[in-house]
Amino acid sequence: MDLLPALAIGVALVAVTTVAGLAWRAAQGRAVRGSGERVRPSELGLAADGFGTRATLLQFSTEFCSRCPAAARLLGAIADDEAGTRHVEVDLTHRADLAARFRISQTPTMLLLDADGAVRARIGGAPRAELVRARLDDILGRNHVGIH
């Protein structure tokens, strides 16, 4: 193979890989609208009162997830600040059935459930506090008008 075509192919591969990596990174920690499907505590092996009375921050993790402990601390702190809100962490390491059921392709993944257990938002990757709080405010019926 000639040097010039080989060099062009190499540069093109680096460019495509860089763009794909930047797109993937930008999608991490972003909230998307929830499916509205209902989740029951019993599906996760929890007691009937395992969810919050107003909202639940449902985190899916694995044993080998390096970002999951920090996500759990963040979500736990947010839930502690809101009456009727609970943080629930589910380890998918030995529960492939749950990973398939909830279409989890990365950990951490968080589902924000309303009082009825309906999925209102989904965040793949490490969650950002301000985003989780904003989505939680939506569920709890609070509006924030910022002063700029």
Score class of each variant (00 low, 15 high):
Ile123Asp: 04
Arg86Phe: 04
Leu4Phe: 12
Asp80Cys: 01
His87Ser: 10
Ala8Tyr: 12
Arg133Lys: 12
Asp81Glu: 15
Ala129Tyr: 05
Arg128Gly: 12
Val39Asp: 05
Ala121Leu: 07
Gly76Val: 11
Ile78Pro: 02
Gly52Phe: 10
Glu130Lys: 13
Ala27Thr: 06
Thr93Leu: 06
Leu13Phe: 10
Ala77Lys: 05
Phe51Ala: 12
Leu46Pro: 01
Val145Asn: 12
Ala26Phe: 10
Trp24Leu: 15
Gly50Met: 07
Ala118Gln: 12
Glu130Trp: 11
Val132Ile: 05
Arg40Lys: 10
Asp91Arg: 01
Gly124Ser: 14
Thr56Pro: 06
Glu63Lys: 13
Arg142Val: 12
Ala20Glu: 10
Ala96Cys: 06
Gly146Pro: 01
Arg38Met: 09
Arg25Gln: 14
Ser66Val: 15
Pro41Ser: 02
Ala70Val: 01
Gln106Ser: 15
Arg25Phe: 11
Arg86Tyr: 09
Gly141Pro: 03
Ala20Cys: 11
Arg25Asn: 13
Asp97Lys: 01
Val119Asn: 04
Asp114Met: 10
Glu130Tyr: 01
Phe51Asn: 03
Asp116Met: 09
Met110Ile: 14
Leu46Glu: 00
Ala126Trp: 11
Arg95Tyr: 09
Leu136Lys: 13
Leu113Ser: 11
Leu22Asn: 09
Cys68Arg: 08
Val11Asp: 02
Thr53Cys: 13
Asp97Cys: 03
Ile9Gln: 04
Gly125Glu: 03
Ala96Gln: 12
Gly84Ile: 04
Val19Leu: 05
Arg86Asn: 09
Val11Ser: 03
Ala126Val: 08
Ala48Gln: 12
Gly45Arg: 02
Leu131Thr: 15
Thr85Pro: 13
Ser42Cys: 06
